[in-house]
Computed example of a mutant assay.
Amino acid sequence: MRFLAYLNLLAIILIAGGLARHYEGTKFAEPVNRSASHEASPDAGAPETGSVDMASVGLRASAAAPTQEPPEENLADINPADKNPVEEKPAATGEPLPHGVPLVNPRLAAKTPSEIPAETPAETGTPEKEAEPPLVLTVLTEGDYPPFNYRNDKGELTGFDVDLAHALCDRLKAQCSFETKPWEALLPALKSGDGDVVIASMLIPSAPRAAPPHEEGIVFTGAYYSTPGHFAVQKSGGFPASAAGLAGKRVAVQAGSVHAAFLTHHFPGVEAVDVTTLKDAEQALAKGKVDYLFGDRNALLRWLRTDGTCCRLAGPDYDDPSWFGQGAGIALRSKDEALRKRMDTALASLVADGTYRRISSRYFSQSIY
Rank of each mutant, 00 (worst) to 15 (best):
L332M: 11
T120I: 13
V290A: 10
E115I: 02
D77F: 08
L300P: 00
I368T: 07
R171D: 03
T138M: 11
A109G: 04
N149Y: 05
D144H: 13
G50D: 10
G295W: 10
K154S: 06
A118E: 15
Y225G: 01
A261F: 09
A65N: 12
N8Q: 09
L304N: 05
R107T: 07
P102N: 08
L4Q: 14
I78N: 12
R21I: 08
A338Q: 15
R34L: 07
K341S: 04
P208M: 03
D280N: 14
S365A: 10
G50N: 10
L137R: 15
S51I: 03
G50S: 04
D319R: 14
Y356S: 01
K249C: 03
R209G: 00
A63Q: 11
S51V: 06
S206R: 09
A122D: 12
Y224H: 09
P188I: 08
Y356C: 01
E88D: 04
E87A: 05
R60M: 04
T345K: 15
R34G: 02
I78V: 14
E215G: 04
E128T: 07
H266P: 00
P80S: 05
F220W: 14
T264N: 08
G155H: 10
D163I: 04
G155L: 06
K27M: 00
V219Y: 11
L157G: 04
L285G: 05
R60T: 03
G94L: 03
G45F: 06
H38P: 00
P228A: 06
S361F: 01
W183C: 00
P134T: 07
V104T: 14
G155Y: 10
V104H: 13
A16L: 09
